[in-house]
Design a protein around this nucleic acid. Structure first.
Lengths: 222, 222
DNA sequence: GATCTTCCATAGTGATCGATACGAAATCTG
DNA sequence: CAGATTTCGTATCGATCACTATGGAAGATC
């Protein structure tokens, strides 16, 4: 809802805004919001300061655009997993294994931008910290929403609440992001994910409808 | 091994270095290394810049001193838990529940300084990021060392390696730190910890020596 | 008490921060 | 082509960054 080629006249841009945004996203992902200076952005994006400010208003707006792009391009696996027509446990498994992949992509910074972007900030950047927190909370809420459907179908482990279990799973994902930052490999994160899923026995409930997982059943599909 | 009251003459200090260090630690904990400016430190420590530099050399040294103090004063629970004369599962339980407490202490910033201090940094602060990573790795190594003893005694869950399980547990702790930053309560983190421990059945092995947990058995004590 | 050493307070260092002023260049509209 | 509009490149802006030069003050040593 923005770059719809208005072209209301005037001198045309001499660069590709999306490519520039990608370069900025990678830099923010690597160094975080505050530690990424305009000088670094200028070099990585191949632009002059006025070009950056004309196209993206200011540094904070550029960062928020990068967050949105990251959400759309780099972690679409999450929405896919939570919306997949599979049982609840398998959906969460896809989510965690997707995170293991996404947090260790070759050529990309390790971990998740929503965490690396900023955890502790200066008071001036509180708004940015809040925006990142909102993305993290949204992830947890997405997990909770998927779990709620599984809860109704009796698919959750005994002794957990939807919110509590969502907080555990979101916490595991956050922990995976830090482990990725600290050099963990894809395989190590996948093993971590499988261990985390061991709290959840594959065979649930007395209703032993285990076969045909790709078939109908207590699924979900927003 | 430092403040042993040399007093080699000269004008005495007009402030308490330990109190000043505590103030700096809290500020770094709250805002992270790079986002904490000297102006903020100056106000929080109640000192002038020359006082700070004379006592702590420079900002990075001050931060490293704060890290050491944090390790000694704020998270001694970790070494206590890993060295406690209890079964392996209980030791890890003490570790995770201790983290739930330490990450949500009233009057202290949420989460763990070793994570909030810096995850992504500017290239100039790479040394600080590495120091924090070393502390995180040391935690994981401490967990692995305790698990190794439990492994020899057959106390670990089936299908896990010592290193892999340590990475899971360290990851859960890291995730708890972020959840604490995002506002999770002590109780919520405790519930998260208990959920994480559900991967580990309380009754291990065929050898059903369950009673007298505080008694002898396949324990450990460095 | 003379001297040495260390710390204090004031003021300010060069460098870098995010963000712009300005006028020329390029394209669209009429 | 004339006018309007937008972006271009160059050269910065004031504010803040981590840090320090300087000279006087306070206590230890001889």
């Amino acid at each position: 809802m923005e770059d719809l080629e208005k072209s209301r006249g005037g001198r045309p841009r001499a660069f590709d805004p999306e490519a520039a945004l990608d370069a900025a996203m990678l830099l923010f992902w690597e160094h975080g919001y505050e530690a990424t200076s305009l000088a670094m952005l200028r070099e990585a994006m191949g632009l002059t300061p006025p070009q950056i400010y004309n196209a993206f208003t200011d540094k904070e707006t550029l960062f928020r655009r990068a967050l949105a792009r990251y959400h759309d391009r780099e972690i679409s696996f999450a929405l896919d997993a939570l919306g997949a027509p599979v049982r609840t446990r398998e959906a969460i498994r896809l989510l965690l294994l997707g995170a293991a992949q996404a947090y260790t992509r070759p050529g990309k910074p390790g971990g998740c931008l929503f965490i690396s972007g900023a955890l502790a900030t200066s008071p001036q950047a509180q708004g940015v910290a809040d925006a990142l927190k909102a993305y993290r909370k949204a992830t947890e809420a997405g997990i909770a929403a998927r779990l709620a459907k599984g809860f109704a179908a009796g698919e959750l482990p005994a002794g957990v609440t939807v919110e509590g279990f969502a907080k555990y799973l979101a916490g595991v994902m956050n922990g995976m992001s830090i482990q990725a930052r600290d050099g963990a490999s894809t395989e190590e994160l996948e093993a971590l994910a499988e261990t985390a899923l061991a709290v959840w026995p594959s065979e649930m409930q007395g209703s032993a409808i285990l076969k045909d997982e790709a078939d109908a059943g207590p699924f979900c599909r927003d």
